[in-house]
Amino acid sequence: MAPRVNVLPVFRGLSIRSRPLAQRCIAAQTRQLSTIDHNSDAAQSENTFSDALRARMQTYGQSFEKKQESEPSEGTERALTENEIALNQLQQAAYGLNPFDPETHGHKFGVPTLPISRDMNQKRRYDTVVEQVTKLLMKDGKLAKAQRDMAMILNHLRSSPAPKVNPTRPLMPGPPTADQLPLDPVTYLTVAIDSVAPLIKIRKYAKLAGGGRALELPAPLHQRQRRRWAFGWILDAVNKRPSRGSGRAMFPTRVAEEIIAVVEGRSTVWDKRHELHKRGTAVRANVFSTKLRGKKL
């Protein structure tokens, strides 16, 4: 139902006001309106609103009144009529405010509490390491199988005894202690992979070392690359690991056993990392090679 009161003054005032003024202006206008229209027959007009709509309108009116209470007001408070509530809303809209309560209006299930956690996004629902590693497990594009395998790996980590960490093969600093790892399999996996991840790779410059040989230089790796190298090595070790059983759980079991071996320092992957680091340290001597002048590094 359209309000019967003339709304033109509202529209006239809306354009030049700046936003900080809006709230004060609304309060003033409302006060004015309430004194003018107190006895107007608009209040006694025939009620065509449905009950539900009226209830909603009143709640909006009340919330608006609460805002008003903070300001010094003269005169006594009284309940606003429907027309006035509608007008108030119109005025709020005019001043660039949202007249409706965003918590309830237009949301069937309400609004979520902010900030939304990272994994609430459908495309980022898994942990970064888990997601990357799952795709590395995948063969022939069978992602669902890889995901099932990953779930089985995590379950195997959960149900096997806590690892005994080898002090000569130190893990990443700062993870939870070894006895807490099994109940948090994602951290278990992350610790294993990050601990054996190499820091560098060897980059080769063809034919620069003389005699047709490549000149080798160490090059740093990004975190994602490091994890890829590490898990590639783990998968190589897994493929060499003999399968003691049969069935679809066997591959995930072998991967999980290799991950446990990494954390316990038994895995050959540690040697690979060590070798690569050693070689990288050695070929640092080539960094200032004159052969590299003019090359894009």
Binding site: A209, A214, E216, A285
Partner: peptide, 12 residues
């Protein structure tokens, strides 16, 4: 590894 200059794959 202690070589101060070129250390290449063959040396390794």
């Amino acid at each position: 590894w202690t070589a101060t200059f070129s250390t290449t794959a063959s040396a390794q």
